[in-house]
Computed example of a mutant assay.
Amino acid sequence: MPVFKSLEAHLVESQRQSPFKGMALLIALGLMACSPEAPPPGEPGCEEWRVEKSPSCVGGGGPSLSQARYWHEATRLGNGWVLVTGGSSVSATEVYDPAARTWWPAGALAQWRNTHTATLLNNGRVLVTGGFGGETPLATVEFYDPATRTWSPSEPLAQSRLGHTATLLNNGHVLVVGGKGPEGTLATAELYDSVDGTWSSAGLLAQMRSGHTATVLRDGKVLVAGGYGVDVSLTMSEVYDPMSNSWSPAGPLLQARQGHTATLLSNGKVLVTGGNAGGLESLRTAEVYDPATGTWAEAGPMAQVRSRHTATLLGDGKVLVTGGMSGSSHLAEVELYDPVAGTWATAGAMSQGRSGHTATLLNGGQVLITGGLGRNGGLGSVELYSP
């Protein structure tokens, strides 16, 4: 049966299944947290590893983020580790090692930011673009190099933007779409060339939008769906063709929505879930886009209305939906969508209600949940979902 567990619970289970294995892991974690000696060459610095709420080197609340963060990004690296960037007033970054279930510092962004993007490039680096930096949308761009564990600036966007999307194309370029700029919602799109580090125009959308989704289809085109236009949530969808660097209309969503999710399914279709149509009223509905016909169809209602949630494709082809907002409440409930049966099923609950969090599929098939907003503000807690 699928379960959510804190990282501390995983350590306890390891010890119960094999006392010596569990003890060795706890001792190793204790040494990493307390040893004044330098780590082996090529390993991150041990002295900055954090265990939130732990009064000593071993025990306590289990490995958590070094600090609470929400509206951040989590990106799985080529080696299976997960890089977490940004959040409200947070410039520090950190990486999660799934094998050791520990967090390591990964340096600081030159500019703290949230509602940004963080995209894994084909060369293994992570491109961070735009976002909100405290007073205005940002045009600045930075990239993280896992080989050197350093951050470097790159050429800025042509336009400052937050609430946009950044999607890796099959040719290695990154497509940045829409968002909000200093003067309002944007219809512009830009292309990043990861080889020479430059930006070029990717044309104009038919509809300005932010809070939308952008999904690479099997044929390499990008489906942009929904979002918020000028004082209204959108049904309009558009498709970008990298070969011609042009946009064309796609079938409209059955329901206007922003703050939703879009997930490419194993059958090549795209599942869109939840969001809201305006105000605080979240949606229960889900729909599926068929690229062969360019049309949308109902995908059955979820058990729970939600927006600002996550949706993660699992190894078995099902989609895990976690948390989000229902009115002013932060949700802990979790659901699974089965594309073969076209049905939804409840999948338990997280230990804490959260929205604006991240959910990242690990190489071992588990899903790492980090941070978000809870009832009392920003969260630093971390949970693992095991199918």
Rank of each mutant, 00 (worst) to 15 (best):
T213M: 14
L373W: 12
E13L: 13
R375F: 09
T322R: 01
G62R: 01
A250C: 09
N114D: 12
G356C: 06
K221I: 00
Q17L: 13
Q255F: 11
W296D: 03
K269Y: 00
T198N: 04
D338F: 02
G131V: 04
P63R: 11
L121Y: 01
L127V: 13
G130S: 06
S329H: 05
S194Q: 07
G268S: 10
S35Q: 01
L368Y: 06
G342A: 03
S64G: 15
H212D: 10
E183M: 12
G323T: 08
F132M: 01
V224S: 00
T148Q: 06
S6C: 00
V95F: 04
Q304M: 12
Y192E: 02
E94Y: 11
V51D: 08
T346H: 08
G317P: 11
G317K: 07
P153R: 00
V174M: 14
A24W: 13
R76E: 06
G178R: 10
L83Q: 00
V367T: 06
L175K: 10
E37Y: 14
V176D: 01
S54C: 12
S266G: 14
L83I: 12
F4Y: 04
E287S: 09
G275I: 14
A286Y: 04
L283I: 15
Q111D: 05
A38G: 04
V272H: 03
L253F: 06
V176H: 01
L368K: 09
N114M: 13
Y337I: 04
G278Q: 06
E281I: 13
L186N: 06
P339W: 01
Q255P: 09
A341I: 02
F20E: 12
Q17N: 09
P39T: 05
Q111K: 10
N376S: 13
R161I: 03
A277N: 15
P156Y: 03
D219N: 15
